[in-house]
Nucleic acid binder design. Sequence first.
DNA 1: GCAGTGTTGCCTTTTACCTGCAACAATCGT
DNA 2: ACGATTGTTGCAGGTAAAAGGCAACACTGC
Lengths: 112, 112
Amino acid sequence: MNVFGERIRDLRRAKGYSLRTLAPMVGVGYSYLSKVENGKLDFGDSPSESLIHRLADTLDGDEDELLLMAGRIPESIARRIFDQPDVFRTLANCDRATLAAVAAQASQTKRK
Amino acid sequence: MNVFGERIRDLRRAKGYSLRTLAPMVGVGYSYLSKVENGKLDFGDSPSESLIHRLADTLDGDEDELLLMAGRIPESIARRIFDQPDVFRTLANCDRATLAAVAAQASQTKRK
DNA sequence: GCAGTGTTGCCTTTTACCTGCAACAATCGT
DNA sequence: ACGATTGTTGCAGGTAAAAGGCAACACTGC
């Protein structure tokens, strides 16, 4: 567990930032960042969506990947769901194998 | 706009409830319910997830449909996304037509 | 031994979600 | 015509969860 925090820590170290260096860059206190990385938030296991956004930005991480790790739905996916809800209600009821197959099909179809 | 509130209103009328009758059944004040139906909440355009749940329950509505109308992602869909995130990231990038085709395919495959 | 780093407990602020009333207009049965 | 019921709206809050801040602590490592 806490795959999210560990990912943040890796990204931060890859940039050579300390907690105290990174914190002001993303607009929070360094102590809060420590808790984020260790999954020791007073509550929940991940920070706000907006902080995740700034972290992805500053650390050159994949924002959607980070959001998913944090148990949040990225806007790119949410938009699609609200655009074609019935499609996703159907897909949510498939078994894993079918869903994987369908995605393969889609990425193929999509290729120009 | 406010398709959600109108749906609630229809469901309520179908049951023959007045605002003052329904409100205590779902545990809120009648004035708040009126604002919900008219999309005139002090903030946001939809009530809490838990109120939506109780409304669906009391009015025999489709909870997931209501959640989607209210701009929220139902648990059934969210679970699937976190289970196979890459699949959904792919699907989010298809065009509408492809996505519709893929869903048709899936519902067919799924049919026993 | 102090300079930089990370950790932790407690505190405050903000946000989301409602409460509760009061006052008003529209409708409707009797 | 009358009261009763229904819905609308404004406002003035209240509460609990979510998000984050501060200060003191402990380790490292030259």
